[in-house]
Amino acid sequence: MPRQPLQQRSRIKQEKILKTAKQLFAQKNYFIVSTNEIAKVAGVSIGTLYSYFKDKKAILLTLLNEYNQTFDSVFGHLNTDAALALFENDTHQWLQNLVNMLSKLEDQQFHSQIEMLSYTIPEVQQTVVQQKQKVQELTRQCILEYSKQNVHLDDEDIDNLSIILFDFISSLVDEIIYGDNSIEQKQQLQNTGITCLELIIKQTLINTKEKN
């Protein structure tokens, strides 16, 4: 863990280092950026940087912790009884809220860097996997509650549907974030994608009714 400065001036310096590192990691590549470059761009001495952070990885892990805290904070708004009820009463709005949350959670460049680093740095991989598991479990819980009130789905159907929805949502969000589309095209893509997700859910319920 980085040293937690007590004085306001020291906290400002630490935040400047973190902000600079985040920008450099996103613009270039984590493995290319050095602590010397971070210190130079941040306007602090290399000694000052090392007084707060053991090494470059410690800076990354601090940024990763902030990234995860932001995710948990935003995610918490969807993981409530009211949100579960919204899935049943207005599935389109619930899906839209989820897609908006995932697509606007972080700036695109840094999010892309985190995704890339998840293949090479275990701590990053663990965070990314945990976030995806939370979203998939939330999707599963919503489907479970919905099926209790409408058509009963067995555990295998619920698991399969939650996996399909999660993979679809992930692909949709990636296209919204990284696709070379205009704002209007992204909005149209989101609306079409959410409509398709609704159809998948409804068709699954229809098929289950007919099967039963």
Rank of each mutant, 00 (worst) to 15 (best):
M116N: 03
E175S: 03
T204C: 12
G179H: 01
D157C: 00
Q125A: 15
D90V: 02
Q149K: 15
V129H: 09
I200T: 10
Y178H: 15
Q188G: 10
P122L: 13
K104A: 00
I114W: 05
E145S: 07
G193L: 01
C196R: 15
W94H: 13
T91D: 04
V124E: 06
E106V: 07
Q126V: 08
K186P: 10
Y119R: 14
T139L: 14
D154I: 08
I158H: 07
N89R: 09
W94I: 02
S171E: 04
F166K: 07
V99G: 08
D90L: 03
D90N: 13
N150Y: 10
L144I: 07
I177L: 02
S118D: 06
F110W: 15
S171M: 13
S162C: 01
Q133D: 04
V124L: 13
S182K: 10
F75L: 05
Q141S: 11
H77C: 02
A83P: 00
E137R: 10
L144T: 12
N79Y: 12
C142F: 01
T80R: 01
I200K: 09
Q130I: 06
E66C: 02
G193H: 10
V129F: 06
Q126P: 00
Q131A: 09
S170D: 11
A85N: 12
D90G: 00
N68W: 14
Q96K: 11
Q93D: 11
S118K: 11
E198P: 01
L138E: 01
N191A: 15
E123L: 12
E198R: 09
V124S: 01
L86A: 03
Q136A: 08
Q185P: 00
T120V: 15
K104N: 15
S182G: 12
L165K: 03
Q141E: 04
T195V: 10
K104F: 02
L205T: 03
I143H: 02
S170G: 01
T204P: 09
I163L: 13
I201K: 03
A82Q: 09
T208F: 01
I177P: 02
Y146H: 13
M101L: 15
L84W: 11
K148W: 11
D180M: 01
I164M: 14
D155Q: 14
A83I: 05
V99W: 05
W94S: 11
Y178E: 12
H111E: 11
T139Q: 05
D159C: 02
N181Q: 10
L86P: 03
T91I: 08
N160T: 11
I143C: 04
L153D: 02
V99Y: 10
L86C: 09
T139M: 14
